[in-house]
C-alpha cells in the first residue's frame, strides 16, 4: 500500500520554513511514499511556490483563508482535519508551531500522534526519543492506522530543491472558531543567522555571570558568522532571551559547528546538541559533562580564551 503523507508547511506568510523540507525528507523515508504539502495561509501564493520546488513532492495544496494570517492551532486544526481525509500520515515539524498544532489535529481526526520522530522505519514503525533523549523507543501502530507525527528536524537533512510539483487550490468548508486571537509577537530581532537552521552556533552558559558579560558570546558569534544560543541556566538567570535556549525544552539543533562556552552540559542541554557535527567545549571545570561529548575541549577561563579566539579569527 502506498503511504500518502500530508506535510503541513510552516511559514511566516512570505517564506517557507526550512523545517518543511526536513519533514519531506522524513516522509520520503517511508517506502513508496507519496508526499503532499499543505500550505494554509491568508495568501499562500509565494509559500506554495517555494514548497513546489522541493524535490519529489507530488503536489502542493494551497488553502487560503483570511483567518490563516497567523498560525493559530485552533483555527488551522479543523482545516487540516478536513484535508487529511485521503492521507495515511499527517506530518508537521517538531517546532513550537508543529508541537502546538499537530496534537489538536490528531484529536480531531482520532489518530494517535507520535512526537519527535527521528526515523521512519516503515509506514507503521517509528523511532523517537523519550526521557530527554536518554531512551530511544521504537513504536509501532497497526497497519491501516492513520498516523499523525511531529518530525524531529535535527534528525533530517532538508530534502533538496529541484522539484516542480503542481499547486492545487483546496477549498476548506469548515466554520472556524473566533475564540482565539493573535495579539502580537516580540522577536529579539537580529541580523544574525537563525538559531534553528544556522550551520554554526556559539552558546553561553551560567558561567558568563551576567547579561553584560554575555555580550562576548555575541562578539565571537559575529566573528564566526554564527547564531547565538544559551543554556537553560543562562536563560533562567536572565543573561539571554528565552528564544535562544538550546536543549530538550528549548531548541534542538544540528549545526556543523557548536561552541559551548561556560556550559557544564546538563543532560537536557546535551539532548539539544547531540546531532551537531563538531562540538567544541570551553569550560574552567575539567570534570564538566560537556567534555564527554565534545570533539574538541579546552579547559580554562572563558574570559581569557574568548577574546584570544576572537583575535586569532580576525588575524
Amino acid at each position: 500500500m502506498t503511504a500518502r503523507v500530508l506535510v503541513i508547511a510552516e511559514h511566516d506568510g512570505v517564506k517557507l520554513n526550512a523545517s518543511t523540507a526536513k519533514c519531506v525528507r522524513c516522509a520520503l523515508g517511508i517506502a513508496d511514499a507519496e508526499v503532499t504539502i499543505a500550505v494554509l495561509a491568508a495568501d499562500g501564493a509565494a509559500v506554495a511556490a517555494q514548497a513546489a520546488q522541493i524535490a519529489d513532492v507530488a503536489r502542493v495544496l494551497r488553502a487560503d483563508r483570511p483567518e490563516n494570517a497567523h498560525a493559530l492551532a485552533a483555527v488551522l486544526a479543523p482545516q487540516i482535519a478536513q484535508l487529511a481525509g485521503p492521507y495515511t500520515h499527517v506530518f508537521g515539524p517538531s517546532t513550537t508551531f508543529g508541537k502546538d498544532l499537530m496534537p489538536r489535529v490528531a484529536a480531531l481526526i482520532d489518530a494517535p500522534q507520535l512526537s519527535d520522530i527521528m526515523a521512519a522505519e516503515s509506514a507503521t514503525r517509528f523511532r523517537r526519543p523519550t526521557y530527554a533523549g536518554n531512551a530511544i523507543v521504537t513504536v509501532e501502530v497497526d497497519a491501516g492506522t492513520k498516523v499523525v507525527a511531529t518530525v524531529r528536524t535535527a534528525s533530517f537533512e532538508a530534502a533538496p530543491a529541484g522539484g516542480s510539483a503542481s499547486v492545487e487550490t483546496a477549498t476548506v468548508d469548515v466554520t472556524l472558531p473566533t475564540h482565539t486571537r493573535f495579539v502580537g509577537v516580540s522577536a529579539a530581532s537580529s541580523d544574525r543567522p537563525d538559531l534553528q537552521s544556522a550551520s554554526r552556533v556559539v552558546s553561553g552558559g551560567r558561567a558568563l555571570g551576567s547579561a553584560e558579560n554575555f555580550s562576548i558570546i555575541f562578539g565571537l558569534a559575529d566573528r564566526l558568522g554564527a547564531a547565538v544560543g544559551a543554556s537553560r541556566a543562562a536563560v533562567d538567570a536572565g543573561f539571554a532571551a528565552s528564544d535562544l535556549q538550546v536543549g530538550q525544552t528549548g531548541k534542538i539543533i544540528a549545526p556543523e559547528l557548536y561552541v559551548a562556552i561556560g556550559i557544564s552540559g546538563a543532560i537536557q542541554h546535551l539532548t539539544g546538541i547531540k546531532d551537531a557535527r563538531t562540538i567544541v567545549a570551553i569550560n574552567k571545570d575539567a570534570e564538566a559533562p560537556i567534555f564527554e561529548v565534545a570533539d574538541v575541549g579546552l579547559v580554562g577561563d572563558l574570559f581569557t580564551i574568548v577574546p584570544e579566539l576572537e583575535k586569532l579569527l580576525t588575524a
Binding site: P112, L114, R125, P129, T130, G133, N134, A135, I136, V137, T138, V139, E140, V141, D142, T145, K274, I279, F291, E292, V293, A294, D295, V296, G297, L298, V299, G300, I305, E308, L309, L312
Partner: peptide, 22 residues
Amino acid sequence: RVKLVKTVPPAQRQKGVMVKDA
C-alpha cells in the same frame, strides 16, 4: 494504539581531543 517495540540507550558520541589553548 501505539505499541512499544523496544527501548534502547541513545548512541554515544566518541570522546574527542583536549587542546591546551586558543
